[in-house]
């Protein structure tokens, strides 16, 4: 019975353009968050559980800025400036949190940053209604274009385009960064901090830099997200989001950028698809959160190093091709 339900659902997805656009946008946002967290947890060898806090800071920063300045300048300019403002606020928060906390190692850093993420959420929830909206959140004025029933589709397509352009730029920038002297210093600190210090690398500075860059990028993801949603509420930035981001990094393979994007797609797709199931799906619909959590646990048990490990997708393809051609050659001889 359930299988029959599932079959019809698979067909239902087809014509649902809005749903797909929304999915793709969310994939792009989580890919940004995953890519930036990868810089901390994948490359810099630190362990942060507070990334959702910077995402929230970015979203609220952009929302606040847009409310202040909407109408005083051309819409797209407000959009761009609000993104920059959000990044700036996230960067400063990253610096303020990073300086004291990054002396901590391993799990202690994880718990300190987790505490930070919770503080941010509580602070927003208890904020003044006129400033950050308290528990009700903020409505973000539409500045890029008017969004109504007719133009909603166009808006989503536009935002998906913008978001994916940022994802590509972000991946490219991060890749270039880790292949520079600063990036190598970061890897060195991650692999042996003591040796790095004794060979002239300032470990604290390297870590703080990685942390601040990652926070800034999470802030950017928050700003884009706020403009797309049209409102921000504190509940959207709970610890569950942190779990998702971290899973994306781990499933994508720590330190793999393309794996990160693929993992973002898989995870968000499964989540959205399970949530979207119609009531006929019965068990599958009602229990979707249980199933989602169950899939996570199974993935961690069976693929603890991520879907592809720490390699980029291109490496995987290359090694598969090599294996394939070697197999063929083996048969010939």
């Amino acid at each position: 019975m359930a299988a029959g339900g599932l079959l019809t659902l698979a067909i239902d997805l087809g014509p649902d353009g809005f749903w797909w656009m929304n999915l793709l946008f969310l994939v792009a946002i989580y890919a940004m968050l995953g890519l930036s967290l990868n810089l901390i947890n994948g490359y810099a060898g630190m362990f942060s559980l507070g990334h959702h806090g910077f995402w929230a800071i970015g979203a609220y920063g952009a929302a606040w800025f847009t409310i202040q300045f909407a109408g005083t300048m051309p819409g797209p300019l407000v959009f761009i400036l609000s993104c920059l403002f959000a990044m700036g606020v996230a960067a400063i928060s990253g610096l303020l949190i990073g300086l004291p906390c990054l002396r901590l190692r391993g799990d202690y850093l994880a718990i300190a940053t987790l505490g930070f993420g919770e503080i941010i959420r509580i602070a927003i929830q208890n904020s003044d209604k006129d400033v950050l909206g308290g528990s009700l959140g903020l409505a973000v004025p539409r500045v890029i274009m008017d969004v109504n029933r007719e133009s909603k589709g166009d808006f989503r397509v536009l935002m998906v385009g913008v978001a994916f352009a940022i994802v590509v730029l972000m991946a490219w920038g991060i890749r270039n960064y880790i292949r520079s002297a600063k990036g190598r210093a970061m890897l060195a600190v991650a692999q042996d901090e003591t040796a790095a210090g004794l060979l002239g690398i300032n470990p604290t500075r390297s870590k703080v830099t990685a942390f601040v860059i990652a926070s800034t990028l999470a802030g950017l993801a928050g700003a884009i997200y706020a403009h797309y949603q049209g409102n921000v509420t504190p509940l959207e930035f709970g610890f569950m989001e942190m779990v998702k981001i971290f899973l994306i990094v781990v499933l994508g393979g720590m330190g793999s950028l393309s794996g990160c994007v693929v993992a973002a797609f898989l995870l968000i797709f499964v989540e959205q698809w399970l949530a979207k199931l119609p009531p006929e799906a019965g068990f599958f619909k009602d229990w979707w959160q249980v199933e989602y959590a169950f899939i996570l646990v199974l993935l961690m048990i069976f693929r603890p190093r991520g879907i592809f490990g720490p390699r980029e997708i291109s490496d995987v393809v290359r090694s598969l091709r090599r294996k394939f051609s070697r197999g063929a050659a083996g048969e010939n001889s």
């Binding site: 960064y177 520079s180 002297a181 600063k182 990036g183 190598r184 210093a185 890897l187 060195a188 692999q191 042996d192 003591t194 040796a195 790095a196 060979l199 002239g200 690398i201 830099t209």
Partner: peptide, 23 residues
């Protein structure tokens, strides 16, 4: 105490001070 997962070349060039601004 080399940086175990970096190449030999990267182990060496990471240390050059002249390159430290290259980020």
């Amino acid at each position: 105490r080399l940086w175990p997962l970096m190449t030999a070349l990267d182990n060496v060039r990471t240390v050059y001070q002249g390159a430290r601004g290259n980020g």
